[in-house]
Nucleic acid binder design. Structure first.
Length: 415
RNA sequence: GGAGAGGUGGCUGAGUGGUCUAUGGCAGCGGUCUUGAAAACCGCCGUACCGCAAGGUACCGAGGGUUCGAAUCCCUCCCUCUCCGCCA
């Protein structure tokens, strides 16, 4: 949610931003409705002041009661119009996108993202590289068929050494982030509507959400929802910022409308797993914290030995709550291209405003915190490990940093 | 799932129709005193919104209702705690 004062003081800026981000809210109409609303606030509050004054007078002057009774009718009419306007204005406000960092590239899709740098050396195979699905089947470590049998298409099993490798990576990543100042959480994997709304997933990504029937609960699409929601309606002591939180949870997404798009393997699925990075910080600190999360992402991929590129995500490929976003795309030799493995968004005060997360400084300063939401690692990173470290016979060499956690240094077909 | 108790400001905890944003304590801020600190004493100390300002309005779990007037009375809902049952 943007500050409604921005709308009142500089509607053109809001309008331009909304247009650039493909938002269909009629800003001019919204401004007019808000203006009427603010005018009514004045009238209603004046009437209430008069009513309150007369009510006190009733104790000594019973005749005042009749006056107040009459006044209540007028007041009730204005109040109901005011409530009506507020409902409409609030609803429209929730659809307005965040403002953009000046260095966000234009563009309509991920093809327009700006590559910032390429890191790591792509492996060179003297054989035809397999993709993760082929490797997973050959090694018997990814089972999509039984995932579909038991749950639905889009669910899958990691099996045997694949599951060990995956768990090893997730545990290792959590440990690394803790070393870097993050507090580890185990989080609920469901959240109520208000939490999803507050984090900006609703109303924008409603059709991506699995809701539980008969409950005000949905499966989380990311632990960002529960970690950011953790401090809803709280005032944080500025001295405790930035706060760095991490957790490892499953993430559930319906992926409505994306059937058939890059659907081979387990790249786009209904349930994946993620180690998340969340930072709450002071407004002036959010660009720095955003970079910090990117450094962490890069550090993890470098330790694993994976080649990747960093992209500055363009307007059209960024969700409405984002102010600036970096994606990291790992190299997938079996697939033959770079594919998104992490994303890292500076949401500025967009979530904090909706959730009521504020800070207070000892110098009396106060305001909404900024939030950064970034990936640590996901299952997609394991897919990249499989593709990059595959051998001609289909076996996969385990990155050294993970070996203390896996207890083995390679996965071999038939073993 | 069954039974009971309760939700008031950063915390604690009074308040059962009007002068209540709301007693007291703790924490916090400022000051007196002190070489400094502690203690003691004095003062300040919620949030949001409207307004140039003066000031005003709203908020005692949420939403309705009664009333000239609701933290206080009525209704609905939510949540928390305790005990019992079940159980990873």
């Amino acid at each position: 949610m943007i500050d409604i004062r921005a709308l009142r003081e500089n509607p053109d800026r809001v309008k331009d931003n909304a247009a650039r981000r493909g938002c269909t809210v009629d800003v001019d109409k919204l401004v007019a409705l808000d203006r009427e609303y603010v005018g009514l606030i004045r009238e209603v509050e004046d009437l209430r002041a008069e009513r309150n004054r007369l009510s006190k007078e009733c104790q000594t002057n019973p005749a005042a009661r009749d006056t107040v009774k009459e006044m209540k009718v007028t007041l009730a009419n204005k109040e109901s119009r005011m409530a009506e306007l507020k409902t409409v204005v609030d609803e429209q406000m929730t659809w307005l996108p965040n403002f953009l960092s000046p260095d966000v590239p234009d563009g309509g899709s991920d093809a327009d993202n700006a590559a910032l740098r390429f890191v790591g050396k792509k492996p060179e195979f003297a054989f035809a590289g397999r993709d993760h699905q082929a490797l997973g089947e050959l090694l018997g470590i990814i089972d999509t068929g039984r995932g579909a049998k038991v749950a639905q298409s889009g669910f899958y099993y990691w099996v045997g050494k694949g599951a060990q490798l995956t768990q090893a990576m997730f545990f290792w990543a959590q440990q690394e982030l803790v070393k870097r100042g993050f507090t580890l959480f185990m989080s609920p994997c469901v959240a109520k509507e208000q939490t999803l709304f507050g984090t900006g997933y609703l109303p924008f990504f409603k059709d991506q959400t699995y809701t539980l029937s008969g409950e005000d609960l949905a499966l989380i699409g990311t632990s960002e929802q529960t970690l950011v929601g953790y401090h809803a309606d709280e005032i944080l002591d500025a001295g405790t910022l930035p706060r760095r939180y991490t957790s490892y949870t499953p993430c559930f997404r319906t992926e409505a409308g994306s059937y058939g798009k890059e659907s081979r393997g387990i790249f786009r699925v209904h349930q994946f797993h993620k180690v998340e990075q969340i930072i709450f910080c002071l407004p002036e600190d959010s660009p720095r914290c955003h970079e910090l999360c990117l450094e962490n992402e890069e550090y993890l991929l470098q330790q694993l030995g994976l080649p990747y590129r960093v992209v500055n995500v363009c307007v059209g490929d960024m969700g409405a709550p984002g102010y600036k976003k970096y994606d990291i795309e790992a190299w997938y030799p079996g697939y033959g291209g770079y594919r998104e493995v992490t994303s890292n968004t500076n949401l500025t005060d967009f979530q904090a405003r909706r959730l009521g997360i504020r800070y207070k400084g000892s110098d009396g300063s106060k305001g909404f915190v900024h939030t950064i939401s970034a990936t640590g690692v996901t299952d997609r990173v394991v897919c990249a490990i499989l593709e990059n470290f595959q051998q001609e016979d289909g076996s996969v060499i385990i990155p050294e940093v993970l070996r203390p956690y896996t207890g083995f240094d390679r996965i071999t077909p038939g073993v």
